[in-house]
Computed example of a mutant assay.
Amino acid sequence: MSDPGVSALLAFIGGTALAALLVVPYIAWSYRKRGRFGPGHAVLAFGMLVYALALWTYTLLPVPDTTPEWCARNAVRVPQLDPLRFIADFQEERIGSGLGATLRNPALQQVVFNVALFVPMGMFGRHMLHRGLPTVIAMGALTSLFIEFTQLTAVWGLFACPYRLFDVDDLIANTAGAAIGYALAPLLRVVPGQRVEAPPGEPRPVTTGRRLLGMAVDVVSVTLLGGLLSVAANALWIYGFGAVTAPQHLHWLLNYALPVGLLLLVVPLAGNGATFGQRVVLINPVGPDGGKPGIGRMLVRFAVGSGGYFTLDALGLGLPAVALLLVSAVAAGWTRGHRGLSGAAAGLRLVDTRAANARTSLVAEDRRPAPEESP
């Protein structure tokens, strides 16, 4: 067993990194699945992600240097296939009597750990995935079996020899832990921010939090896309052309021009006028006539909003860029209809996309020719 502190830290770091990559798709999914973004759901989803990585770190780490010499001395080649063998191990490793000695028994600690390791799976399986008891038990058993075979096969042949024991008692304890977790799942209901007040398709008000979330999605999406494009370009230049790094002007194009132009200009102009972040949180900007904003208004919004922030940042004007970002965030709460600084400058209003779609459908319905009456 690896150091629990190190395994937990690695799982948290890995979960945080994955969450940063998955946060935008998760927000988009949440708005379309539940009609809103619930912070309680997000906290539990993050916990489930960290837990999934913890299963890997706790069961496979630390990875030894499986040299032939190490394998000759330490390889675990014979699986433990005797059910409930841990009872005999408990008696063999028992030193002293009393509750304290019992709690310090390594055999008992191993069983308790293996049960506890799968309790979150049962809780998440019932509360987050809405699965019944048979399915949750099957999830626990199959996941445990996969882990045990991974250990038996030296991580499916990636290492020279098995360095962990295939133990049928671990399979039993893990499955029991999943069942116990199913019973404890109602405790997750106390996490605040999970309440869904209306059906997913029903429009909601455009609030300050929703505006700020859309702005944050724009900034995060542009940053992530620019970073991924730069990494891909560097890999191409290093491994394809043998250069140390990609040219500086290419970094500017990939870090700024392309992601900003695509997400903050092309997406609004080609769509309903919403930036990528606004589309994620189902916000629709409309002009004075209630329709899609004109090109001029969208360019003004771009210059005063996120586009202006990234332009100032690309020009090396970090302080003005941060100032614009802060003013925009404050204006999202103080302006009428939460249209923010850019919306006010461009003369735009913000509505829920579901309300805008419903209104468009009604207008289209009204414009249909009436059916001819039969004689």
Rank of each mutant, 00 (worst) to 15 (best):
V191P: 09
A257L: 14
P259N: 11
A173S: 14
A246Q: 14
R279S: 10
V304T: 12
S361A: 15
A323N: 05
P64Y: 06
A233E: 01
R211A: 11
R73T: 12
R36F: 08
Q278F: 03
A332H: 10
A160C: 07
G214D: 02
F46R: 05
R94H: 00
W156Y: 15
N74E: 15
Y256I: 04
A8C: 10
T175Y: 06
I137R: 03
V217I: 14
N284S: 13
L341A: 09
V281A: 04
R354H: 12
R34Q: 01
V23R: 08
L152Y: 15
T175C: 06
R34L: 09
R104S: 15
R104D: 15
A54W: 13
R73P: 00
L133K: 06
L171C: 07
Y31A: 01
K292S: 02
Q80E: 15
L264A: 03
A45V: 10
A45K: 07
M215P: 03
F310H: 09
T353F: 03
G122A: 06
T311I: 13
P62I: 08
F146K: 04
S328W: 03
V196E: 07
N357W: 06
G340T: 02
L228M: 14
L324W: 06
G227F: 10
N357A: 12
L22G: 11
T67F: 11
P83G: 02
I283Q: 05
L108C: 05
A138M: 03
T335N: 00
G347H: 05
N74P: 06
E365V: 09
R301G: 12
V267S: 03
L10P: 10
E148I: 06
L158T: 13
D289R: 11
A364L: 13
G305R: 07
G15E: 01
V222L: 07
A346R: 08
C161Q: 08
A11S: 12
Y31S: 10
L228Y: 06
A355Q: 13
A331C: 01
G294W: 10
L282P: 02
H338C: 11
H249A: 15
F159C: 01
A185K: 02
H338L: 08
M215C: 08
D3P: 07
P375A: 13
N74F: 14
G214E: 03
R73N: 11
L81I: 12
A20V: 10
S342F: 05
W56A: 14
R359T: 14
L53E: 04
L315A: 14
R339G: 02
D65A: 15
G340P: 08
V363T: 12
F310V: 02
T102Q: 09
L142V: 15
H249N: 03
F146Q: 02
A101S: 13
A42D: 05
G209R: 02
T311A: 12
T335P: 02
G343R: 00
P247S: 01
A235N: 11
A346W: 03
G240C: 00
A88W: 08
A19Q: 09
P134M: 04
G316V: 00
P200F: 06
A257C: 03
G296T: 07
L55G: 11
A331W: 03
A176S: 15
E93V: 07
L99M: 15
T16K: 07
A88V: 13
F241L: 11
E93T: 13
V155N: 06
L103R: 00
G242F: 09
Q278V: 01
A331E: 05
L312R: 09
R195S: 07
V111T: 12
Q110F: 12
L299T: 04
